[in-house]
Design a protein around this nucleic acid. Sequence first.
DNA 1: AGCAGGTGTTTTACTCGTAAATATTTTGCC
DNA 2: GGCAAAATATTTACGAGTAAAACACCTGCT
Lengths: 198, 198
Amino acid sequence: MTASKGEPAGGEAAADDTRPDTRTGGGGEDVPVDTVAAVVGQWRAVHPGLDTGPMEIIGRINRCAALLQQAEDAPLRRAGLSRAEFDLLGALRRTGRELTPSELARETFSSGAAVTKRLKQLTERALVDRRGDDRDRRVAHVRLTDAGRDLVDAVLPDQLAYERAVLSGVDQGAQDGLAGLLGELLVRLEGRPGAVRF
Amino acid sequence: MTASKGEPAGGEAAADDTRPDTRTGGGGEDVPVDTVAAVVGQWRAVHPGLDTGPMEIIGRINRCAALLQQAEDAPLRRAGLSRAEFDLLGALRRTGRELTPSELARETFSSGAAVTKRLKQLTERALVDRRGDDRDRRVAHVRLTDAGRDLVDAVLPDQLAYERAVLSGVDQGAQDGLAGLLGELLVRLEGRPGAVRF
DNA sequence: AGCAGGTGTTTTACTCGTAAATATTTTGCC
DNA sequence: GGCAAAATATTTACGAGTAAAACACCTGCT
């Protein structure tokens, strides 16, 4: 959420008791149950007829996103940046060229007003620079200063190392599977037509 | 975000061009590429040495979460509720009992202050009710009013139907795979010990 | 009893994002 | 050329969340 918030939960939230939830599997061994599974269980107890399938996916995506974002904010904060600010700087860095405020809004999935405000602060901190277009005097061109570029380049490896650490408990096969399936879902959500066949 | 924000993107964001991104696969057919893949590609072009593996998962989770939350807000808005408000009411509904403000904060993963504010509004709208504990006069007990309960029960099926529609483009096998892998990741993120074997 | 320290809840001050309104400039059309 | 409509960016007013302080009450110790 925002993004420096520590909280957006899905329509479904935490389990009731505070001890590690487990469910006894078919073979008698204890299988750990995540909070979403516990919540879904509560719903099914209250509304036995409900098809709770979608919750198992969407609830988990939302919960994972909330936890991951919270974790990721730590290395950013150390560098004095919010996630939104890093997103903006990162967009400039990875495209490798100047971007206009509208392009930045598109790249970072935020509103124009939000970009205006962030640019103001980042300009004051001398992390970005702006110049007007001379063809079209409505538009501005924003680019990273050297300090801005260096900051992104310093933070990014930390960020990735942190992410790697967070994922380290999940084996490589599962990681590849997740990346693939999430990509498939994302293509759908982004409203693209399916693969173009010919 | 409140949760009702339409935007938190990951540390990685949108692709540059506006047409459906495709990448030519081994057999000559076009494979659709999601925005996260495009962003990761940009990073790798700028920083060839970087291990961008974690982005492929975390970036996609964040992006999926943002899109899903935006989509889900529609049926909620129709009922005059924000996602955060629905989470609170939902916690009361699925536990089937009164909860204190602290319990609500835990259940909905939000701060106590946020819960206080939401309770104030929901009480004014007569969706919840509060009474003081007589043993411990610090604590309050919050419960759904009949109107609150009816509202949740009316909204939830809509919500689930909407979710089902959003996921309808993804085949059942992929959905099951996603739910399982996300559950595995979530168990790790929630800091539980692994499965308890004996 | 009386007080130190802890817990549950609310209040305060502030940040940040949004939507809607505004200013400015360009573009298309007659 | 001149004006209506669109595009770009910013400003304004406001809503919602947070962290930290304040408040109210309980618990246990002496």
